[in-house]
Design a protein around this nucleic acid. Sequence first.
DNA 1: CTTTCTGTTAGAAA
DNA 2: ATTTCTAACAGAAA
Length: 271
Amino acid sequence: MPELPEVETVRRQLEEAVTGRTISQVRVNTPKITRNDSDFARSLIGLSFVRISRIGKLLIFETSDREVYLLAHLKMTGKFLLNKTPGEYDKHTHVVFSFGDDRELLFNDVRKFGYVVRASESEVNQAKSRFGIEPLTSEFTLENFEKIFIGRKTNIKALLLNQSLVAGLGNIYVDEVLFHAGVLPIRKSDSVSKEEKKRIFESIEEVLGTAIEMGGTTFIDFAHTDGKSGSYVDELRVFSRAGQPCLVCGSVVEKTRVAGRGTHFCPKCQS
DNA sequence: CTTTCTGTTAGAAA
DNA sequence: ATTTCTAACAGAAA
């Protein structure tokens, strides 16, 4: 579930909690999470976190060493948790950062798809360059958004899920955005009118903006760094509501498979 | 018990 | 070149 609003929520909480703190100890319980980096712990001890930034769903930790960064992706079930009882955590805790006080930063991930890896400045720039336009920034303009349609004819859902075109949308928010915009997920991108593109563009800003304000969506696993849930789940209009009445028109919300993903829509509100 | 499904995405296959 | 499909993994649900 971590999509842009969830990752942004975590970013803000991490920035508040760990910037300026010196790493005194690092424990790697599951080497795969760090891409089997045998120097991971040793190279981080003594450094401090300077800034936490984000592009799409990727978290970027700047450290006090200009050449040392951490790149972290939550994938499906990853979480960063601030642990108030050092040494006590479950079997899904793969990396532990200690700061020499009574708080630890944990990376926890049931499915182990996520990662926390060390990167150089050039590797960070390489990673950034693979992302498309970032919503809620000055580069996210209608003009730039319209450009991603050029030369493409896949369905609109796959287009919006493509991180190299727009950064940060995932399965939940694409369904919600398309409902908000009144466009069916299966529509071929080259059939989407200029007016519809404008509605989708504005819906991305609206839906993501509100979701960030509400601390993201906790559907099953997503948690804030304090373990609490996001409340945008109460605002979902179609996602996970198959078989239930559309909150706008009362029609039954349907679920199909589009772009290989479970896809929810209202057959009356979207066309 | 077995099978199916799940929020992501890199990489293979088409 | 773009688009589609699958594997990576664990656990909940059917």
